[in-house]
Simulated scan of single mutants.
Amino acid sequence: MNVFGSVVDRYDTARPGYPPELADAIAGYHGSTPSRVVEIGAGTGKGTEVLVTLAAPVTCIEPDPRMAARLASKFPQAQVLIGTFEQWRPPPGGVPLLACAMAWHWLDPVTRNAKARAALAAGGTLALFGHRYGYADPDQAAAIRTALDALDPTATDRPADWMYHDVLAAGELTDVHVERFRRRLPLTRDAYLALVSTFGPFLTRPPDLQRQGLDALGRLVDDFGGTVTLDLLTTLTLGRAA
């Protein structure tokens, strides 16, 4: 679902990047510098920022042309392909490193693990990473959850380690494990509302519900003194093709 292209500028500025330690963790698991990296659903390049530091050629797959254009302008050294992971054809023998940042849930849950395994070379690495947006202050967390539930009681959050459990349960890869990185990120009212307005569940809601949600959250942040501090948990799931 291409919902992010309409907010490409906001997405690129509001979404937090990833800790640079991710690159060391990926390289350490892989065991050497990969000869090639392929990234699924690269967006505007939040994950690409980590992957290009591996000093290997990077190919980025991104279905939205607007996101792909921003990605290409930021990373001219990367090859950017417009299309879906399902449309992409891996080279003969597969690729040594396949990565995906915050886009694994957009892939077909029935086939994504098998397709990833088929795209990997023997001994190749799958690296999935993403953020879980929590709140450092439990009172802020409870107030925000109450406000969001009032607008949409059907909304749910995935468990922090859901990608790890997804890969493990599929049984396509070996040596599957997860690493976690945590940091606190204070955001002003405007920065927080900009971030929320880039989330997929927000963008798929009707415009009137979007406005109600931002108004309610804005009032809450004002009550908090104008700042929200995120408890940003980044998880990295790694698996190996036998």
Rank of each mutant, 00 (worst) to 15 (best):
H165P: 05
T125Y: 05
Q212Y: 01
P92D: 08
L81W: 00
V176M: 01
G123C: 11
L185F: 03
L230Q: 04
T234H: 01
I144H: 00
G31F: 03
F4C: 12
P16T: 14
T111S: 10
L220H: 07
V221L: 02
R158A: 14
G5A: 13
L193M: 11
L195M: 14
T53G: 11
L97W: 06
T33V: 15
F75L: 06
P57N: 10
R211C: 13
D161S: 14
P20K: 12
C60T: 12
E39A: 02
H105C: 11
R117N: 08
L54H: 09
D149P: 00
G239Y: 02
G31W: 01
W104K: 07
M163Y: 03
L151V: 15
Y18D: 03
I61L: 13
P57W: 04
G43S: 14
M67V: 11
R205C: 11
D137Q: 04
L232V: 14
A99I: 02
P90D: 10
Q79V: 15
A119L: 13
L120H: 01
T234N: 10
R132V: 14
G94K: 05
V167T: 10
F181V: 15
R184L: 12
Y192N: 10
L232Y: 03
T198V: 07
C100Y: 04
H165F: 05
A119W: 05
T111C: 05
T156D: 03
I40P: 00
F181Q: 04
G47I: 13
L120S: 01
G45V: 14
W88R: 01
V176R: 00
G225P: 08
V58H: 04
A191V: 13
P138R: 13
D161A: 15
P20L: 11
Q87H: 13
E179P: 12
I144C: 02
T204M: 12
D9T: 11
L203M: 08
L126F: 06
G123D: 10
L185R: 12
A241E: 08
A27M: 09
L230N: 01
V7H: 02
L128T: 09
G171V: 11
V52W: 03
T227Y: 01
R184G: 12
L51S: 05
Q77N: 07
L220R: 02
A136G: 06
V221Y: 01
L81I: 15
W88S: 07
A69I: 12
H131S: 09
R132D: 12
T235P: 00
R117C: 13
T174Q: 12
A141S: 13
V196G: 02
P76R: 02
P201M: 07
R112G: 08
P90C: 12
P153L: 06
G200M: 07
R36W: 01
T234M: 01
D231M: 15
P76W: 03
W88Q: 04
T237G: 05
V8Q: 03
G41T: 11
K46T: 09
Q79A: 12
A242M: 06
T229L: 06
T111D: 14
T198W: 05
A25S: 15
V221G: 10
D215Y: 03
T229M: 01
K74C: 09
T84S: 10
P91G: 08
D157R: 06
R66I: 08
D149T: 15
D223S: 07
A147T: 10
T198E: 05
A122N: 09
G130V: 13
G94Q: 02
L238C: 06
V80N: 04
A27Y: 06
T234E: 06
D223P: 02
V110P: 02
L120T: 04
A141Y: 03
A147I: 07
P138I: 15
L217E: 10
